[in-house]
């Protein structure tokens, strides 16, 4: 809710430029969920441990529960809602469906973003790279094995589409 202390900032959110009003120290997580209506970004702990609130902020994975709204100023932000193109899922999302990478789904938006981020910077990761890239994203359901499979499958799909 905008109040007297709120500021108006402009950012690019999922490819669209827009202005948002909030207190500069409001959590980006709350602004995304409440002001921008993007509830795909989840809160699991509110203290930077679980990664359920992960977004891509200027091309880097960030915990939006620890990010003040002020950091959104002129920033490029991608949330889970900005990963698919229309009805076409991203290769990472398709691979999660194929390999069983999502169970309850609450960690999934954050983990999909972490995987997208990894594959953009490291197109051919080893399993160890995958494990390291996901170390900040907790999943209580899967034991991570199907998630590792999903990320490696996504990597194969992306390589095939590039070839």
């Amino acid at each position: 809710m905008p109040d007297r202390r709120s500021v108006r900032l402009t950012c690019t959110l999922n490819g669209r430029r827009l202005s948002l009003d909030a207190h500069p120290m409001a959590r980006l997580l709350d602004v995304l969920r409440q002001q921008a209506g993007l509830t795909g970004t989840k809160e699991g702990c509110g203290e930077g441990e679980c990664g359920a609130c992960s977004v891509l902020l200027n091309g880097r994975l960030a915990n939006s529960c620890l990010t003040p709204f002020a950091h959104a100023d002129r920033a490029t932000i991608v949330t889970i809602e900005g990963i698919a193109s229309g009805d076409d899922l991203h290769a990472v999302q398709e691979a999660f469906l194929e390999c069983g990478g999502a169970q309850c789904g609450i960690c999934t938006p954050g983990i999909v973003l972490a995987a997208v981020d990894l594959l953009e910077r490291t197109p051919h990761p080893t399993e160890h790279d995958v494990r390291a890239a996901l170390a900040g994203n907790l999943c209580r359901c899967t034991g991570y094995m199907r998630i590792f499979d999903s990320v490696l499958e996504a990597c194969r799909r992306l390589s095939a589409s590039r070839a």
Binding site: R33, Q34, L38, T39, G40, T41, K42, E43, T79, I80, E81, I83, A84, L89, Q93, F96, L97, E98, G100, G101, A102, G105, I106, T108, P109, V112
Partner: peptide, 23 residues
């Protein structure tokens, strides 16, 4: 068969609605 999870698409796209997502 490893049929895909029914609600999988909603989960991987962030569309699945958990209780804190409604107001």
């Amino acid at each position: 068969r490893s049929v895909h999870r029914k609600e999988g698409r909603a989960k991987v796209t962030g569309q699945a609605l958990y209780v804190d997502d409604v107001a």
